[in-house]
Design a protein around this nucleic acid. Structure first.
Lengths: 143, 143
DNA sequence: GTAAATTTTATAACTCGATTTCAATTATAT
DNA sequence: ATATAATTGAAATCGAGTTATAAAATTTAC
């Protein structure tokens, strides 16, 4: 299990690797994501920061998110034509998403068997998986 | 197995259901897709039509593609941030896609087990699948 | 400690696929 | 034929995301 400090260190390291500095804005974006749950879009983060009296431009938020994605600290979710969503990744098990088309609800699911099968499927074609997108668009089963 | 005529009938029916007419432009777009293989974007279709001396605007192409998607005659593929791609659907078995990140090649794959498992996964959460997106971003296995 | 150099930021302009508006064209009905 | 309606293409618009740039903040040099 990773604690707050360790996570913060990963962030600092990522910035160092990028050769850029730890600024209040970048810290604010990072903290905001790390102290939240769920799937959040740039606007959510922007709003949330405003509410805390911190005004960071959307441009900076996007730039920071890009870095966090590249260093595997967060995951970018693109579902349909909606705005991209971001979720924290460190300390969380891999999972994919089920999206209820009636409510918009996003449900996380994990299935080792599927993961294994898709590896095999790639191998069968002479490839190895670098990343994957697996989204189920669902509706409730009516009783 | 479905022949050309049957497929054409489905198209006519779709237009009827929409309450719109079978125009030369719409026919041209439809024929172009049905007589082609692979994953094609609006521009590909536009270019291809131009080459045949048929000038249909991109607006009309997009409008027609939308209808074809809604009536399950073609499938819309959105891969990464690229332009949407379309492939004919009728007369083809369901499959998902593997995208080589080195060449951009798109490989189709089908895996009954995965299909089954994801159905179960949805069920487990009280849902049934309406549609799904399953894309593997891969690179060749080096020997 | 102050000035110059560098980095970072926010604003606003821009990008680009896709969609929509609207005037002009084409088809249909009477 | 004339009126009505549908369709089209060009251009305007959309919107998430990116980029240019000038101002602000920070760092570095002296």
């Amino acid at each position: 299990m990773m604690n707050q400090e360790d996570i913060q260190k990963l962030f600092v390291k990522a910035l160092q690797s990028e050769g850029i500095k730890l600024t209040p804005q970048r810290q604010a974006v990072f903290s905001n994501i790390m102290n939240s749950e769920g799937h959040r879009e740039c606007n959510d983060i922007h709003q949330s920061l405003i509410k805390d009296g911190i005004d960071v431009s959307r441009a900076t938020i996007y730039r920071t998110l890009d870095i966090l994605v590249n260093y595997n600290l967060i995951r970018k979710l693109v579902i349909g034509n909606d705005r991209a969503k971001y979720e924290k990744k460190i300390g969380k098990k891999h999972h994919d998403h089920m999206i209820c088309i009636e409510t918009g609800n996003i449900i996380e699911f994990e299935n080792e068997e599927i993961e294994e099968l898709q590896e095999q499927e790639a191998k069968k074609h002479g490839y190895q998986i670098v990343k994957h997108v697996h989204q189920l668009f669902v509706k409730p089963i009516k009783k």
